[in-house]
Design a protein around this nucleic acid. Structure first.
Length: 676
RNA sequence: GCCGGUGUAGCUCAGCCGGUUAGAGCAUGCGUCUCAUAAGCGCAGGGUCGGCGGUUCGAGUCCGCCCACCGGCACCA
């Protein structure tokens, strides 16, 4: 029997899943159920990503042990997934022993392959700046800020030789065009590969929350490196060789478009290094927007999938998300549109069709339908539909697959209007014709319902039962149940409306936008946490991972790009007082040439002194709008060169999903005033 | 700034290698049937196919330039 191993990204557990997360799982579930319908032995795995500092911190905030916190969150996630009828076969957690075994296996094999080198990261280091310097930052070999020659120093770390795999990855992409879909994502990654790869740091020193690096137990495996391995640990790498042989390599990783690079570049390189087969395909799906806007937890605009499901049922939500959003592209969700589609597709079309077919069967034939064997145009169309449906679903054009089924439903409604069984029923002489029409319509509907099974598992099963097809869901096969049955009497049963038509005065939901969460105050703007908000999926902060912690001579940053949170999230007043916050007045502002985000500000920082600060707020403020404003800034930050200029400080702004909002004062204090 | 994508009826989108009056679904209006969830079926209105220019007998479909929006990279201490 053919096999199919399917995964979704594993999720951070620092907050509950929202509609964007649910979208990924639902579409993956549709694929899994479609495969099973096709008679494919399918293994569908989901899970949670728990070795994140954010998770650790969140648990601490709540005064809980991290693991206990993760246990609780697993239950919350499972509750949501159950409500959405997700048919995963296994649920992996990165804190499980089997995952630890797999991580150790892979890291050990990578080390054995010689692709892991103990950091000793080298680079130019300016003592004045307290920072590593890139070659390109130096002016005639000197630090542009301090006019001194930086030192060449070393710092310990563990790196994976990602750069060594560029050619093999390029070759793989060339040989397997289907490896990364859709094509937009593929092109992006190809360009990234063209630009070259840098080695990546895979360890974090001095942390306890994580899996110790086998080659250096004083460090833990960096969270996203750890997370990727879940796909292998879930099928027994390092714990169950037989299971692993059965399922590996994975056939499909369904992930958000923001993390395709982890799955299409780093993950295959890791596997190549470890001498393991790479997954057959990665699919990067798009986002679900809310009213055209990115859904955001911090703005309180994230939709609770449970609320959406409760509104019209889980199956209705599953249908909406699969049918209305071209798979791979971004889509838009609104309750108005959801209701509109619910009424059109489910109440008026499918639901009503079920009712009229079964009602007429009951009324004219006491539920007993007998075949007459006469071919009809519906039978031909059904064959075409099955073909189109299969072709679409096989290439994950889920929306097209579903659309083709609805064309068959439309045709069935037309057929009834054309043959008018209610008229035939008036004259006993038409008994044979009436039998033919009732049977044909019921069979067409039955077949269409089978095809919708992967999308709406519960309700299609209910419809089929009413149509006299009592095959258990697990035994349903496309080749058998998706074929037109010209023979075999059956019994249909009338019943309640499955999807009563709904008309609400105001389908918008006020509670969605009700309570915006507090906005993070963060120095400088623009650093949005997309993965947290939107995909909340696996391999963590893409901003932090591949590009930044690199070891090539060209890159500084000894470890990660993240500010390396200490084991304690709490700081003392002494720590805080090290930061010198001051009031400043913007004397002049101009856009930095060739930069999209930077404004160059001339800030009065004392009675008669001024300094230059570069601020990443150009997407939120024009230079004119900011001149004359009184702002807050960090005064004692090490100078930093950017875009050929040097910034002496950092402006404070609230960060609401990439949109900066400067801090304002009721009555502007004099420039230079200390803030604390 | 570089790279890529999108821009077609009120809304969501189809339109392959250029070829008769540009399509579908939803929404709207009218008509009609009555088995059915005021559902079904039929008909209709509605589009300078983002803009300008070019190639061609002929362009939504090819080429160039421009505009808008989206995404990726650089950049965001």
């Amino acid at each position: 029997m053919p096999r199919f191993y399917l995964t979704t990204a594993i999720d951070y557990v620092n907050s509950r899943p929202h509609l964007g997360t649910a979208y990924e799982k639902i579409t993956a579930d549709v694929i899994a159920r479609y495969k099973r319908l096709g008679g494919v032995d399918t293994h569908f795995v989901m899970g949670n990503d728990e070795h994140s500092q954010n998770v650790f911190r969140r648990a601490r905030e709540l005064g809980q042990e991290p693991l206990a916190y993760c246990d609780r969150m697993e239950q919350e996630f499972r509750d949501v997934w159950r409500a959405l009828d997700l048919s995963f076969d296994d649920f992996i957690r990165t804190t499980q022993p089997r995952h630890k075994a797999a991580v150790e296996t892979i890291v050990t094999r990578i080390a054995a392959a010689g692709d892991l080198y103990q950091a000793d990261y080298e680079g130019w280091y300016c003592v004045g700046c307290e920072a590593f310097k890139q070659e390109k930052d130096l002016v005639e070999g000197l630090c542009p800020i301090h006019r001194t020659k930086p030192d060449w120093i070393k710092e310990r770390n563990h790196f994976f030789k990602l750069s060594a795999y560029r050619d093999r990855l390029l070759a793989h992409f060339a040989e397997h065009p289907e490896f990364l879909q859709p094509d937009v994502r593929r092109n992006e990654i190809l360009r990234l590969l063209d630009a070259g790869l840098e080695d990546i740091s895979i360890s974090r020193a001095g942390q306890s929350w994580g899996i110790p690096l086998p080659t250096d137990p004083s460090s833990v495996v960096y969270v996203w490196f750890d997370a990727l391995i879940n796909y292998a640990s879930a099928v027994g790498l390092g714990t169950d060789p037989a299971l692993f042989d059965t399922w590996w390599p994975a056939d499909l990783h369904v992930v958000g478009k923001d993390i395709t690079r982890f799955h299409a570049v780093i993950w295959p390189a890791m596997l190549m290094s470890a001498g393991l087969p790479v997954p057959r395909q990665v699919f990067g799906h798009g986002w679900v927007h809310l009213r055209g806007e990115k859904m955001s937890k911090s703005l309180g605009t994230a939709i609770d999938p449970l609320e959406a499901a409760q509104r019209f049922g889980a199956d209705a939500l599953r249908l909406f998300l699969t049918k209305e959003i071209p798979y791979g592209a971004d889509g838009d969700f609104t309750f108005e549109r959801f209701e509109e589609r619910y009424n059109a597709d489910l109440a008026n079309n499918l639901g009503n069709l079920v009712n009229r077919v079964t009602a007429m069967g009951a009324r004219y034939r006491q539920g007993h339908l007998t075949p007459t064997g006469s071919p009809s145009r519906l039978q031909d169309l059904a064959a075409t539909t099955v073909r189109e449906y299969g072709a679409a679903m096989d290439t994950y054009a889920l929306h097209q697959g579903v659309a083709s089924v609805f064309r068959l439903l439309d045709a069935t409604n037309e057929y009834l209007a054309e043959r008018a069984p209610w008229t035939l029923a008036k004259d006993p002489a038409n008994a044979a014709a009436l039998d033919e029409v009732l049977f044909t319509a019921a069979e067409s509907l039955r077949l269409a319902t089978v095809l919708l099974g992967p999308v709406m598992p519960a309700s299609t099963q209910a419809i089929l039962a009413r149509l006299g097809d009592h095959t258990p869901l697990v035994d349903r096969r496309l080749a058998v149940d998706g074929a037109w049955r010209a023979a075999g009497a059956r019994t249909v049963a009338a019943g309640e409306a499955l999807w009563p038509r709904v008309v609400s005065a105001d389908p918008t939901t006020p509670d969605v936008t009700a309570a915006p969460a507090p906005v993070q105050v963060r120095a400088l703007s623009g650093v949005s946490s997309v993965p947290e908000d939107q995909s909340s999926a696996t391999p963590v902060s893409p901003v932090a991972a591949p590009a930044a912690p690199a070891a090539s001579a060209a890159t500084p940053a000894p470890t990660s790009a993240e500010p390396a949170p200490s084991e304690d999230a709490v700081i003392t007043i002494d720590d805080f007082m090290k930061v010198e916050l001051k009031v400043g007045k913007v004397l002049a502002a101009e856009a930095v040439p060739k930069s999209k985000k930077l404004l160059k500000l001339t800030v009065q920082d004392g009675a008669a002194s001024e300094r230059t600060i570069l601020a990443g707020i150009a997407e939120s403020y024009t230079p004119e709008a900011i001149v004359g404003r009184t702002i807050a800034f960090v005064a004692n930050l090490a100078p930093r060169p950017m875009m050929g200029l040097v910034s002496h400080g950092m402006v404070l702004a609230a960060d609401t999903d990439g949109k900066a909002q400067l801090i304002a004062f009721e009555t502007p204090p004099a420039p230079g005033t200390r803030i604390r």
